[in-house]
């Protein structure tokens, strides 16, 4: 670790551009307003699709789950400023790993329960 007032820029390896920090501070919080509106639209759309059963339940579950992932991405990008960092945004790496493990854990648990035979 270097001293707090040191001015050098941390070099980011090629291929690791996704961890380069970004900051945005506009005069009016337009991003937040759009993010809020988009999350409301996604919520009502998912609810409407479910109540009206516009397709077969298993496909619909996949669709509303995809919409939830969209909302999560919206929260992370618009509200959590996920790329803000002092140096390279290394927290993106373990965060991505945690989401991958989480999806694997939930997905495989749901999958294994599809087998009706065996332990119940």
């Amino acid at each position: 670790m270097h001293g707090g007032d040191e001015q050098h820029e941390t070099a980011i390896e090629p291929g690791f551009d996704f961890i380069s920090p970004r900051f945005e501070e506009p005069k009016f919080p337009m991003h937040q307003v759009w993010g809020y509106a988009a999350s409301l639209v996604l919520t009502f759309a998912a609810l409407w699709m479910t109540v009206n059963r516009i397709m077969s339940p298993s496909v619909l579950l996949g669709v509303v789950l995809a919409m939830a992932v969209g909302q999560a991405a919206l929260q992370l990008g618009v509200f959590m400023h996920v790329r803000e960092s002092r140096g390279p945004a290394w927290h993106l790496v373990p965060l991505g790993l945690a989401f991958a493990i989480g999806i694997g854990l939930v997905g495989m648990s749901a999958w294994i329960m599809l087998f009706k035979s065996g332990v119940s």
Binding site: A46, T50, V51, L61, V64, L65, M67, Q71, A72, Q75
Partner: peptide, 13 residues
């Protein structure tokens, strides 16, 4: 949002 989707919406599906 995941609880709403998986638990509440999923409960209908």
């Amino acid at each position: 949002v995941f609880i709403f989707t998986v638990v509440y919406l999923g409960g209908r599906l």
